[in-house]
Design a protein around this nucleic acid. Structure first.
Lengths: 162, 162
DNA sequence: CAGTATCCTGTCCGATACTG
DNA sequence: CAGTATCGGACAGGATACTG
């Protein structure tokens, strides 16, 4: 990518975008976390050109989001399985779905977030895990952490309004 | 955008990506939710070319993520304030930060998610709001909702493994 | 089935110059 | 300060043909 200043950014959002900053990457992760594994499955689900699928799949493997596994020796065949990092990306997709449902589905939801076992609806939320209580989204924000550089620290001070 | 099949997609992730599918859009929303308002503030924070900033700002206004407000009549000056939809996008960014912190910050976090008032660390999580208990991320998934089309319904059936 | 190889187009993005 | 105008390059993404 040609975005100079972001490559070494310490912002976790910018870092993440370097890995999954393209449409197809996110959509492929969505499908992979839904259980799709094989080239052909992604191909049909996404209606994506095969060369693009190869490119995105490779980039996701390089980024450590998917792992390429051999599932057949002769002929040689691979499947693409989410790594721990990829599996964790689920939290981002969940948030995305919850947000989309709230604002782009006035007529009703076509996709629901649920606990798989029970089928009961769930919602993303923020919580103070140490104390064990929920914190409203609006009350949450970001703050400089232990590894923040001076410039990052200053940046987070400055915009502290809102 | 030239992604034919996704424009009318009913997947909330695809819909969302149509609004904020570009790097700068997400980074601008990050800053806007941190309290930045003015052209110049974004410009310095992001180190973005002014023409690009104009484009992304306009697209975010069109997408209903930001609202353009006049804060000075003479000379005419605008500021860019998150709408309710934009404000809600915070949940996605929070998830992004949490994910990035877990996987791209082995040396320690440069940005922490906190409750603003207390400064105490918070985490995104999934919960069954009706019953009031937390549900582990791995136990969560998606399921066809009331407005799902037949094809969407089938798609969500199929990949139900994992 | 699971890709690879080419070619082409759109546009994201950067750099720079300019304006009230 | 808050943008607009113009130019050029890199690459995401599309279409199609081909292979073991």
């Amino acid at each position: 990518m040609q975005r100079k200043s972001l490559i070494d950014a310490e912002c976790p959002i910018a870092r993440g975008l370097e890995r999954v900053g393209e449409w197809w990457s996110i959509l492929i992760m969505r499908d992979a976390l839904q259980g799709l594994r094989r080239f052909d499955e992604f191909s049909r689900s996404l209606d994506i050109a095969p060369n693009m699928l190869t490119r995105r799949l490779n980039s996701l493997v390089e980024a450590g989001m998917l792992e390429r596994q051999v599932y057949s020796e002769r002929p040689l065949r691979h499947q693409y399985v989410p790594t721990a990092k990829g599996e964790d990306f689920r939290v981002v997709l969940m948030a995305f779905v919850a947000w989309g449902n709230r604002h782009f589905a006035p007529e009703g939801e076509s996709v629901q977030l649920v606990e798989r076992a029970s089928g009961r609806p769930v919602q993303p939320m923020m919580a103070d895990l140490a104390e064990g209580y929920a914190v409203p989204l609006q009350a949450c924000g970001v703050q400089a952490g232990p590894m923040a550089s001076a410039s990052m620290r200053q940046r987070l001070q400055g915009g502290s309004a809102e």
